[in-house]
Structures are given as structure tokens and as C-alpha cells.
Design a protein around this nucleic acid. Structure first.
Lengths: 221, 221, 221, 221
DNA sequence: TATGAATGAGAGTTCATTCAT
DNA sequence: CATGAATGAACTCTCATTCAT
């Protein structure tokens, strides 16, 4: 997205200006990628700006040209992940309306696609971005809350269409938070801290079965 | 516990020796308590040994007499929490054998007792101890794995006594990990990052209903 | 003045060349003005070239095209102020020859005109240019020394015309330095550090009365 | 004074505790002296904490153990100078009451004693502490204002005892500010920027004659 | 045992300056 | 001429850890 470099660009750009802009966005991504892999490999606090600059093959000053500070690096990373996560996983809840299928598709999407494709982003989401600073917390919470809204929406639509109601006014949110917790716990337990990729398909299936089971039981299907 | 100061103490102790030992253990706890509240309030990395010493009203040197280093403080804290958590919450799974009641009691114990009584320990468990260092991770995993064993045991005993079997060989563990995730997510969402104590009872009830529902559905009750 | 861009320009210039030269001088002044206001508002060291370029709406490179370096900006500023100060205030000593009137006119000129019109230049002269670098010091000294010569000249002419002599060979210079000090102290105290414009007229009058009084007493008028 | 290290010390101290305290105060002074001479020789901004630590033969950390930050170093210096200046020079105004003698003694004290003995402190007062930061400015202003009060007091007492009044309500303060300016200008011109010690006695005499002359003229003596 | 002054490596960050386009 | 991305040295400041007393 190149958030930090957004330039209102109403008119056309010359060829060289276009090239420079493309290079700028590449640099931005290169640095962000370097930060991502180092944060995951060594931990946020153990990663110095110097190391990031080295890996990205730029100078320290260049890192600070593209990012406000170290915290900003983590936040941009998190925001990018947030966008990706919701457009891949969260979107599944909307596609398959008013049935349990959405929950199964989303789970499949997360465990069998997202975790395989972006294990580092999962690690950022569920480990490196926790408890680092108030501002990071805020952005993390935003990601969290949005995803919870995705799930809650699906649950509400289901209950309306299928004509059943949840035990308490908070049930919907609580279930959504619980499902998010299942995602996190499974991913952290098997992927992040053990790097166990092999059975993730079966594990994902079991987890989805369990989390869907809870819904089924609650709505009396 | 005075773990770090374990002294083989076969014989009897004189009165003054007893007093000194008592004082040592008090000091140990005072320091640990200071560390706990600062870690929670300011974050592990933002808390310096000097601040801990100040709050505990001892010198920096004294902190290093009782604890190997800063990491050790977090580990001792985590181990203490681990012990407390398992003897309060994990134990519930064993008390009410072979029925779903254990899961409900444990949930109640966690949300309505533990979270209320030890919100700081919950914050250490679910926020401050994440992604700080390999050694801390190891101890955290131990706590995690033990609790998962507690849940898994209960699940297995249930399946044996009630004569049903889980879909896959991993199901039991996956469900256990999922339940742990629900605990963490609910506690983090409502308690740690929002400090919302008021509805925690209802929230806990809903969460337990959901997690138990998943089990019921799976074993066909 | 375009000092830094002095071009031997014996012949006539084409119309477009004239326009370009005019634009160059405008740019030069725009940058200098931006530097002046930022130096005064934020302090010399706290002002970066980037900020100056931003305010002047040019690029960093352009600043370096017109000025050798950051120090040069301050020096050009100081030299401009020096010229202005001497042609407005210093000149008054020459206009009203051989009487005390020159001292009064000059004081009036400084406190009631110069300080009101150019408070930022006063701040540069009496605050920002102090103790920044040897080269800046040198230019500052030049301004100082020239103004002292203006005053000394007036004093000497007075003593000759009115037939009295000063106690010691250094008296003239000492008085000149003292008068300069009075200007600086009054301007700094009321204008630079307090922004008190309101009573500056009365204050100026009192200050002039005092500094003229000293001369009167010394030459026995 | 050891301001930064003030410890309430009601009871008696053991011999070793006394020695440690003495050592602490010595260290504090050593660092402050190193800072003073470097600030004067190289300028505040050109002096790095590393250089100060080197000259004081301590580590960087030790500098930060005794002083909050670099700014604090300058402020402590300034406050010490303030105390010294007022107790040596400012006090003279009180000793010789209600005559012009106080002004002469104070001038003599400043030019012939203070400047000779503490040329570095003069440089800090009149050069290095100008325009460095709002906080430093504030402390500088305090020194300034207090000294102006010393002079104003003497002027007021004189006018009361000798039965004359000043032209305007601001005259007293304006004269005081002017005298401060004469001190500063003379000291800066001859001492700080030229290091000219030789004729300082005569220069001081002339300056005092001039500043006293202004008072005499104003009060009609 | 307890103290707290001392250490110094290492962190994040800034910014004057350059130079290819 | 103008641009602005890139540089990297240098800076201030922190803090876990040690050790003489």
C-alpha cells in the first residue's frame, strides 16, 4: 500500500518520475520485509535498526527516511497483515451467507492457506506485536476488533436467517472472541513455537470441527 | 517457595537462623511482587532493575542476590503462576471426573475466581511473557503444555467412560489447545486490554457454554 | 543582495536573463527569511536544513545551491542585519554631529524603530548568533566592532568640538562598548525573552536618558 | 552545594559512609569542572558527553548517574555561577548602603576580582548559556532577574535616602538592566572574545565611572 | 548479606551534506 | 538549476550487570 509515502497524484507522471516512485515503493517493501523476517527470527527487541538496514542493504538513515521509527516499522507491518488477513480470511464469512459453511471456509482458509503461505505474518500477529507499546497494542486491537466484527456479523446473520437466538446479549461477541482465540492458540502452539507444518491440515480440520460444533450446539442444530 | 535459595536443611535451625530464613523468603517475595506489578504496569522491557529495587525498597545488588538476572525474575514469576494456575484451575478437571462438569467448574474457576483475584498474573501469563526470550518461551510452553495435559486427560477419561471416540488422533490435543486459546482470548480481550471486570461473570458463562458445546457436539451428547 | 551569487556582469542582460536573475534573488531571500524565522522560533541548532527548505518551499538541494552550508545561512543573515543596523542606527551618530543629539536619535532609532520593525533580527543579533561557531563569532565581532567605531567616532568628535578630554585613553572605547551593552541588555530583557512591546517607548527613553547621562557626567556638561 | 545529590542526613554517619559521601561530592565537582572547561573551550553543542566523561576520567554512565542529562549539566553550572556571582558581586550593593559607593565596589568586585578569578564562569554566563534551550533560558533569566533586583534595591534605597525621584516608574529597572548590560558587554568584549586581561583594571574603572556617571546625572548629584 | 556507585556496550535517532537524475 | 533520496558518522541516553566496601 505504501501508506507512509502516499502522494496525491492527480496528474500524469513522467516516465522517470514513475520509475522513481516504483523504486521508492520497492525500497519501502524491501525494508519492511527485512524487518519482518528479523522480528520473527530474533524478536522485536533483539532486532536493531542496524540489522534491518544491513539485511535490506540500505543505510540506517534510509530506514528512517521511510519509517518514523522502529515502532512505526512494526505498526506498518501489522497494518499490512491486518489488511491481508481480513481480505483473505475475514472475507470468507461474508461469502457463504447464513450457513455454517462460512466458518468452515474461513477456518480452512486460515489454517491451510494463510498459515502455510505467511507463517512469518502469523508470528508477527500472534507473538511479536504483543505487549510492545501502547501504540502497537492499539493497532493490534484494531485488527482484532475488526476480525471479531467479521465473525459476529456472520453469527448474527445466521441467527436471523435460521430463526434462533443466543443465550445472552454478549454471546455473539464472546463466541467471536473465542474463535479468534482458537485460531491464535492453534497457530501459536503448532506453527509459531514448534514450526510443525506437517499435520496442520488435520489439525485445522479438527479445530474447525470443534469451533463449529460449539456454534451448532448453541443454536440447536 | 524460595526456589532460588534452596538450601539442604536436614537438621534443626536455631531461632535466629529461622528468623533469617523467614526474612529471606519475605524479601524474595517482596522483590517478585514488585517485579510483577511493574512488568504489568510498564511492560517487561520498560521495567529496569533499578525501578524494581526501588519499589521493593532494596538495593540493586540485593535483587541480584536473590535472582540470577532480569530474565530469571520473569521465569520465577511465570513458574509461580504456573503452579497457582494448575492447582486452582487445572485441578478442577480432575475433581469432577468423566463428565462435562469438570469443564464447567474449571471455566468458572478461571473466569470468576482467578481473573478476579489475580488479574496481574493473567497479564503476565498472556502478555508480558510472550516473545521475550527463548528461555522464557520454554517456561511458558511448559505451563501451556501442562495445562493442555490437564484438559486432554479429562477429555480422554470422558471418552473412555462414556464410550465414544474422537474423529482423529489429534482431536483431543487440538480441543485442549483450543480451550486454552479461548481462555486466553477472553481474558486478554476483556480483562488485560480493557480492564472490563463488570460483566466477566456473564462473559465467562457464555464462553464456557460455547467451549462445552463444542465438546458435546463432538461426542454426540 | 545576492552576495553568494555575485556574478561579474559588465554587459547588458537579455530580458529572460534578467527575469532569471530576479527569480534567483527572490529565491535567495525566501530561503534566508525562512531560516531567520526558524532560527528565532526554534533555535539555530534545533532548526534543520530540511525544515528551512520546507518553509521556503524549495528542496534541500536548492538551499545548498544558494548557501555553502548551514553556518553560511547564519552568517549571511548576520551580515544583512549588520548592514541594516549600521545604516539605520549607526548612521544617526554621524548625522547629528558633535552634540549629544546623535546619541538620543540613535537610541530612539534603535528602540522605537528597529526593535519594532525587526524583532527577529534583534533576536538573531543578540541570541542566536552567540557562541555557535568561530566563524559566526568572527562575523558577529565585525558587526560589534563597526558599531563601536560609529559610537567612538561620535564621542571623539564631540570631545574635540566641545573641548574636553576623557579620563583615560580607553575611555572612549569603553563607553562605546557600554552603550552597545545597554542596547543589547534592554532589547534582550524586554523584547527577546519577554516579548514585551508595550512600554518599549518609555523604556527606550529611560535607557537613552541613562546612557546620555553617563556621557554628560563624564564630559562635565 | 551538591544540589543534585542532596540527602537528608539527620543522624550521624559512619566514617566510611562519610568518606563515600565526600567522594561522591568530589566526583560531582570533577564532572562539573570538566563540563565547564569544555563548554567554554569548544562550545556547548560541540562538547559531547563522551568528551566530558573522558576529561573527568569517568565513564559515560557515571556522568548520567550524577546528572539527568546534558542540559542538566549546564543548568547546575549556571546555578552554581548564579550563587557565586550574587554572593560576591550582588552582595556589594547591600554592604555600602544608600551611596554610590556600592556601585563602585560592585563594579570593582566584578571586573577586578570575579573576571580574573573565574573567566570560565563569565564565559558560561555570557555566552554558552544563551539560546540553548527553554529550561536553560529560564535559569539564566533567574540569575539575571535576581541581579537586577540587587541593583534596583540599591537604587531605590539611594533615592529614598537622598530624597530624589526617578523620571519614570520604570527608570529604576531600566537602569538596573542597563548596568547588567554594561557588565556583560565589557566582559564579553574584552575577556570572553579577546582574552584581554591586561588592561581590565583600567577598563573596569572607566566602565564603573561611566555607569556611575549615568546615575549621578539622573539624580542630580 | 546488603549496598549502590561505576561501568560500557549498545540502542535509537538525527541531520548536514552529497549527487545522480 | 532543481530535486530529494541516500548516506553514515555522531550524538544522547539507557540499563543489565559487577564488585569493593
Amino acid at each position: 500500500m505504501g501508506k507512509g509515502l502516499a502522494k496525491s497524484n492527480g496528474g500524469a507522471l513522467s516516465r522517470s518520475a514513475l520509475r522513481r516512485q516504483r523504486e521508492r515503493e520497492e525500497r519501502y517493501q524491501t525494508i519492511l520485509n527485512a524487518a519482518e523476517s528479523l522480528f520473527v527470527k530474533e524478536g522485536y527487541h533483539q532486532t536493531s535498526i542496524n540489522k534491518i538496514a544491513d539485511l535490506a542493504e540500505v543505510s540506517v538513515g534510509t530506514v528512517y527516511f521511510y519509517f518514523k521509527n522502529k515502532e512505526d516499522l512494526l505498526i506498518q507491518l501489522l497494518d499490512g497483515i491486518s489488511y491481508l488477513f481480513r481480505s483473505r480470511v475475514g472475507a470468507e464469512f461474508e461469502n457463504a451467507d447464513s450457513t455454517l459453511e462460512g466458518f468452515m471456509n474461513a477456518g480452512h482458509m486460515f489454517f491451510n492457506e494463510f498459515c502455510h503461505k505467511y507463517p512469518e505474518k502469523v508470528a508477527i500477529m500472534y507473538r511479536e506485536s504483543i505487549g510492545q507499546s501502547p501504540l502497537v497494542d492499539e493497532h493490534r486491537r484494531k485488527l482484532h476488533d475488526n476480525f471479531i466484527k467479521d465473525i459476529s456479523g456472520a453469527l448474527r446473520r445466521m441467527s436471523e436467517n435460521m430463526g434462533f437466538s443466543f443465550p445472552s446479549s454478549m454471546s455473539v461477541e464472546v463466541i467471536a472472541v473465542s474463535i479468534m482465540g482458537i485460531y491464535q492458540s492453534i497457530a501459536s502452539h503448532y506453527l509459531v513455537s514448534r514450526g510443525k507444518f506437517q499435520n496442520l491440515d488435520q489439525i485445522g480440520k479438527d479445530a474447525v470441527a470443534y469451533l463449529v460444533g460449539g456454534i451448532k450446539d448453541m443454536c440447536g442444530i
